[in-house]
Design a protein around this nucleic acid. Structure first.
Length: 466
RNA sequence: GCGGGCGUAGUUCAGCCUGGUUUAGAAUAAUCCCCUGUCACGGGAUAGAUCACGGGUUCAAAUCCCGUCGCCCGCGCCA
């Protein structure tokens, strides 16, 4: 017998159905016993009466979160017993037979409610239970829909989704890498990608022209409410484009996504305002200003572009480093200064961020595809020629064989969904997030590994602090 | 690395400031009993807490002091 999803049962009054799910609540009234049965689609009231002795007696044992299979008839409720709070409130299931599929111990946390006030440690340790709550289940499903929207949208625009390696090369600049020891190359390490930046540019060199990827990115820096060790980006790159092409595409994609998935939300200003970095700093003292006119309006979305970032900035020890991305291009008028290493602090990058309600959603840029210019950038940052070629030779070489002008952007999926779902924290839209100090309470990661594993990897552990 | 907040039944909290009628209290979950229409069902009973851990002050510490650990938020950091 085919299984019915609970949300579909209301359309089948009078029919015999089979439903499966969890006991959400149990209300025993002496002779009559109600169960609210929950599955992925909704909640259905199930009625057990003594006249069906076998099922009734078995149902006495049921407790919250037991998993059951029930066959019965969908019947219309009497007028005065309709529950308008649930989708199936006008019907109920009159039980023929009950099968217990799985029992449950007393729960370590409450599944009812939004769960915000439950200790994070408990929620994370029993994340699979925490995720049973409506709010979190919904967040994950909505997240899926957002990703699917982007995939379908970009597919229609002629993009191809292409996977790039998770095991790659440590990059000397930028964020701290997660490294992975190599067994076959003793003493050498892979790094997990901080972003697919170099690979996607090499795909442009390869002539793929329009690339995207739902890409996991890893950065070994301390966590925040809007930051985890690993996050997911909608990474995209296009060839033969200028800044305008990227901004137009991304803006159109976001607007369409909001209209489709969040028809109740209002976008404050279309087209998205564009604010040069300098102006943003002068006016808002921030490069991610929150432009919402009413910050209490949960449905208001204020997007903006921040453009024209400076390319270089001085580090503490007085050396030049890049502000955003060493592979970004400079705006055309600054190329002579770059090549002559003049007015370095004034050089402006062809670099743009998209900001939503005060949160940086994405960073992108038109890239350098001229090896001489890219080499000059690293030279200004104090790299020796041999060093540049050792670290970035693959990029410079690729650019010597006919690489088209290209550019892209990478919106953060976690942050987008966090804002759209009005969540206070990025963890609420990630299935299995880590704690502030990078631990997984459920899996007990990170963990020590077997001596044999270490030996194979040619690794020995020195003294650790503690 | 630094600053702030928090830590009491399975869970969420009260009690702490002002130490002693507190045998650490409640709600909810749990166990048992009663109830044929509830939907946060209701009524009754039972059980459940080394008050995060360690030390100190005191006749007396959940309460005051010091240290440690854990979680959260922020700063640093985060192409």
């Amino acid at each position: 017998m085919q299984r019915f999803l609970i949300k579909d049962t209301a359309k089948h009054i009078g029919e015999k159905v089979r439903v499966c799910g969890w006991v959400n609540t149990r209300r025993a009234h002496g002779k009559i016993l109600f169960i609210d049965l929950r599955d992925i689609s909704g909640i259905l009231q199930v009625v057990f009466v003594p006249s069906n002795k076998e099922a009734y007696d078995l149902a006495q044992n049921l407790r919250t979160e037991w998993v059951v299979e029930i066959v019965g008839q969908i019947v219309k409720r009497p007028e005065n017993m309709i529950n308008p709070k649930i989708e199936t409130g006008q019907v109920e299931l009159s039980v023929e037979s009950l099968k217990i599929l799985s029992e449950s111990e007393t729960l370590p946390l409450t599944i009812e409610g939004d769960g915000y006030d439950i200790n994070e440690e408990v929620r994370m340790k029993y994340r699979y239970l925490d995720l049973r709550r409506e709010r979190l289940k919904n967040n994950l499903i909505v997240r899926h829909k957002v990703i699917k929207f982007f995939r379908d949208f970009l597919d229609k625009e002629g993009f191809a989704e292409i996977e790039t390696p998770m095991l790659t090369k440590s990059t000397p600049e930028g964020s701290r890498d997660f490294i992975v020891p190599s067994r076959l190359q003793p003493g050498k390490f892979y790094a997990l990608p901080q972003s697919p930046q170099q690979y996607k540019q090499l795909l442009m060199a390869a002539g793929l022209e329009k690339y995207f990827q739902i890409a996991r990115c890893f950065r070994d820096e301390d966590s925040r409410g809007d930051r985890q060790f690993e996050h997911t980006q909608l990474d995209l790159e296009m060839s033969f484009v200028e800044r305008e092409d990227i901004l137009e595409l991304v803006e159109r994609m976001f607007i369409k996504m909001i209209e489709t998935l969040y028809p109740n939300k209002k976008i404050q200003e279309i087209p998205f305002p564009r604010i040069p970095y300098k102006e943003a700093m002068e006016k808002y003292n921030s490069d991610k200003p929150d432009l919402r006119k009413d910050k209490n309006d949960k449905d208001l979305l204020a997007f903006c572009w921040i453009i024209d970032f400076p390319f270089f900035e001085k580090t503490e020890d007085g050396k030049w480093t890049f502000v955003h991305n060493p592979f970004s291009a400079q705006k055309q008028e600054f190329i002579p200064d770059l090549l002559n290493k003049k007015n370095i602090e004034k050089i402006v990058a062809n670099q743009y961020d998209i900001v939503l309600n005060g949160m940086e959603l994405a960073s992108g840029g038109i890239r350098s595809h001229d090896p001489k210019i890219l080499e000059k950038v690293f030279e200004i940052m104090g790299y020796k020629k041999e060093e540049i070629w050792e670290k970035f030779g693959h990029m410079l070489t690729a650019f010597q064989f006919g690489t088209p002008p290209h550019g892209g952007i990478a919106p953060g999926i976690d942050r987008i969904v966090t804002i759209l779902q009005n969540e206070p924290n990025i963890r609420e839209v990630i299935a299995f997030p880590k704690t502030g100090d990078g631990r997984d309470f459920m899996m007990q990661a990170p963990s020590e590994v077997d001596k044999k594993q270490l030996k194979e990897l040619h690794i020995s552990i020195g003294k650790t602090k503690k």
